[in-house]
């Protein structure tokens, strides 16, 4: 059962310290909803800023020194280099502290972490984005990336839902998405609301009603666990194969580099093997979402 052990690992001093954040400055704070704010950051070090590269779907660890670290997807696309954007839902100690940030404040960043959406393999495909609540954040990265490289991709449909109109983020983006002729945007809320001109109904139901064709199409979805569960069922009923469905997982993370042992699903680590998985991959993993 045992291999001969490899030579004792050493450390030659050249490997970077993976726990040391880079210092960044908050350039803009956008209040999205009553509990979600988006932060735009710039790395302080000019060289680090120039060398920083990432792919849509990758994560970052934001540090508020004294409060701690928390994990978020980078939700601005790599095609827009002026800032890195993170959307933070207030839910605990660190996120509450993050909500107190103002432009000019210092923050720590460890990024990029994890894998990315297969944006190259998706070239030439039709895309259906299905985002629920804060789950729109990772969708936004890939969607903006594709809109910036519009001719590389086929038809793009976005279905974005939240509980109430006030729970929808990215107001400016939404206005733009609704106006664009090169994509179809459908917004939905759970229950009727005064002045609402879009769909009313749960995301999986609206998806079934829209009935996108699975032909040469890939669905990308992210949202709360219960929404994902029924969305996957709806997609399968529409004829989407597990390989045609991509999702990005949220897990409690600490190290973000596959060491601290916190984010595993069986022998997969969401921080390095994910956060992006196809539904086919998820089906092969142990059932512990």
């Amino acid at each position: 059962m045992h291999d001969t052990p490899a030579a004792r690992p050493g450390h030659d001093g050249s490997a970077p310290n993976p726990y040391l954040p880079q210092i960044a400055t908050v350039s803009e704070v956008i209040t999205e909803t009553h509990n979600i704010k988006s932060f735009r950051l710039r790395l302080d070090d000019e060289e680090a800023r120039r060398n920083f590269s990432f792919e849509p779907g990758q994560l970052g660890q934001l540090s508020l020194f004294g409060a701690g670290e928390a994990t978020f997807v980078i939700n601005s696309p790599p095609t827009r280099k002026e800032y890195l954007q993170f959307s933070v839902m207030r839910a605990g100690e660190v996120t509450s502290a993050l909500h107190g940030l103002k432009p000019g404040d210092k923050i720590g960043l460890r990024a990029p972490l994890g894998n990315a959406f297969p944006y190259n393999k998706l070239k030439g495909k039709n895309l259906v984005f299905i985002g629920g609540g804060i789950g729109m954040a990772p969708m936004r990265t890939l969607l903006l990336y594709m809109l910036d490289k519009r001719k590389d991709y086929g038809d793009i449909t976005l279905l974005y839902g939240a509980r109430t109109p006030q729970d929808l983020s990215y107001a400016q983006d939404r206005e733009d998405w609704l106006k664009r002729k090169d994509m179809r945007t459908v917004l939905t809320i759970d229950a009727p609301a005064e002045g609402w001109e879009h769909k009313v109904g749960l995301i999986p139901n609206v998806l079934t009603e829209l009935a996108p064709s699975p032909e040469n199409t890939v669905a990308v979805t992210c949202g709360p666990p219960i929404m994902i569960k029924f969305t996957l069922q709806a997609l399968e009923k529409l004829g989407f194969q597990p390989e045609q469905i991509i999702t990005t997982l949220e897990k409690r993370m600490k190290c973000g580099i596959g060491i601290c042992g916190r984010c595993n699903i069986g022998d997969k680590y969401v921080c390095i093997d994910g956060p992006v998985f196809t539904y086919a991959q998820l089906k092969n993993m142990v059932n512990e979402l």
Partner: peptide, 19 residues
């Protein structure tokens, strides 16, 4: 060792403190 040395996957981070 292999976990903290990031063995297995190219580009894996190394835990410099342990190593």
């Amino acid at each position: 060792d292999p976990v903290y040395a990031g063995s297995g996957t190219a580009g894996r981070a190394q835990d410099t403190y342990y190593l």
